[in-house]
Nucleic acid binder design. Structure first.
Length: 458
DNA sequence: GAATTCCCCTG
DNA sequence: CAGGTGATATTG
């Protein structure tokens, strides 16, 4: 229960835990704010409290332009400047071939401000931040891939092997070859058939059978292949169709990735996409205790549980929309029909543009949902990185769909699908059996709680 | 670092 | 409502 006193203290402290739970109505100005708003705190005698933005607006207040209490909790606007800096950092790492000017343009801010933001939040200018990551990635590739030094240099976004030499030497004091010689895991496989091989190490245990079966049940024929120890998928990266195989190597505790050498320049993207699909960076030794803390019994926790990822938000959105209100089997059969009819090459997943133009005669679906699918594809075509607020503006895309995509296609480990029907049933059944679950206690790992509950057999 | 924008207070 | 203050985000 949020009492007035609690609200007052929360807003004075700008406590982020209360963000979204109530709003501050400032009577003297007719403006309403979030508890975290950075503006000078109004006097208590001038404020009222409301518990939703709708309520506030209905009372005649207009949203503050600083904290944007009207925007949805998913949007960048809601999350403020900190996420701009985080997005910038992410883009600098993931698009190493793109100029820094271009990055600031994509963020909608000036190059100068980007520089300032990076200094403020990471204490390092963008250029330096990027080079640092390029060196780390290069080091990793030297250790864990069979790429030549030349390939590594171009792969991480340097224009020449010489550049790699300079930067790597200034950071580590070693030359690329010295780094390669000190590699911990010997690479038995030399480059053959022009395939690049990269090892992705994970921290065990790893429940590969669960992941494999999950993917097998939702396979897109042609785009994906599954075998006992491997998952193969064709990624769409900047117009290229890159077939990547991820092979489970339990003895060595890594996945072995392979893909054609002609896509060296995509290696950062490929590694990041595969890492997401495999949820490679999950740390079970931290997650399992968190799950126990919130009330799960150890028998209900699968050791090595991972979130089966989807490497593109577009694909995740398509799967989610076609999955609304139908069974998994029905949903995937629709996805497959769509893929068979509209895929450009049988391997590559449909492009947003093609989908937005299609009459969708290939699938049986209510007209309203077809419209939703097309509008969504149009949005992804025009603005691939559109934030979730824009998704929600589409008729037919609601909080469930967005949350589901957030769970499977972003690296947010804290997506709690408390509105999901199955989750509610599970919670109810557990409660009746005398087992209470306090989801907040396993933050920031609530994605794993969501999956654990889905997996529960009752 | 100045200028601008924004919000809140007081009279 | 006007005028004044303090603070933040952003630009050039």
């Amino acid at each position: 229960m949020l009492t007035r006193e609690l609200c007052q203290r929360a807003r004075m402290a700008r406590d982020p835990r209360f963000d979204g739970r109530f709003f501050i109505l400032v009577r003297s100005t007719g403006i309403f704010c979030r508890p975290v708003c950075k503006v000078r705190a109004p006097l208590e005698k001038n404020v009222d409290y409301a518990f939703s933005a709708i309520e506030a607006m209905n009372k005649g207040y207009r949203p503050c332009l600083r904290c944007r209490p009207d925007s949805s909790p998913y949007s960048y606007a809601w999350q403020g400047v900190k996420t701009t800096a985080q997005r910038a950092a992410k883009m600098l790492v993931e698009a190493p071939h793109q100029s820094i000017d271009k990055i600031s343009e994509r963020l909608g801010i000036s190059a100068r401000y980007l520089h300032k933001l990076m200094l403020a939040h990471f204490d390092i200018p963008p250029k330096k931040y990027r080079v640092f990551h390029q060196v780390l990635m290069a080091k990793r590739l030297l250790h864990y891939s069979n790429m030549s030094v030349e390939q590594v240099a171009h792969g991480v976004g340097f224009n020449s092997a010489r550049q790699l030499q300079n930067h790597i030497k200034s950071v580590t004091g070693l030359t690329p070859l010295q780094i390669r010689q000190s590699k911990r895991v010997p690479m038995q496989t030399p480059q053959q058939d022009n395939m690049i091989i990269v090892h992705l190490q994970y921290q065990g245990p790893y429940d590969w059978p669960a992941l494999r079966d999950f993917f097998a049940k939702r396979l897109i024929q042609g785009n994906e292949k599954i075998s006992e120890h491997a998952f193969t998928k064709t990624f769409s990266i900047n117009g290229d169709a890159v077939e990547v195989t991820m092979r489970y190597m339990p003895k060595q505790s890594y996945f072995e990735l392979d893909y054609s050498h002609e896509y060296v320049h995509h290696c950062a993207q490929i590694i990041s996409m595969a890492s997401r699909i495999l949820d490679i960076s999950a740390n079970p030794s931290v997650i399992a205790p968190a799950l126990e803390l919130c009330g799960l019994q150890s028998a209900q926790i699968r050791p090595g549980l991972r979130i089966p990822g989807i490497c593109s938000r577009f694909e995740a959105g398509v799967r989610a929309i076609l999955g609304q209100q139908v069974s998994v089997t029905a949903a995937i059969s629709q996805v497959n029909k769509l893929h068979a009819a509209l895929s450009p090459s049988a391997h590559e997943f449909v492009s947003p543009h093609t989908l937005s133009q299609s009459d969708l005669a290939c699938i049986k679906l209510p007209e309203t949902r077809k419209n939703a699918l097309r509008s969504f594809a149009k949005l992804m075509h025009e603005d691939p990185n559109a934030d979730f607020e824009k998704w929600l503006a589409i008729k037919g895309i609601g909080p469930w769909t967005v949350n589901y995509v957030n769970l499977r296609a972003t690296d947010n480990p804290d997506v709690w699908l408390d509105t999901d029907l199955v989750i509610r049933q599970r919670l109810k059944a557990l409660a009746e059996a005398g087992q209470a679950i306090d989801a907040d206690k396993c933050a920031p790992w609530r994605s794993y709680l969501t999956f654990s509950l889905w997996n529960l057999e009752l």
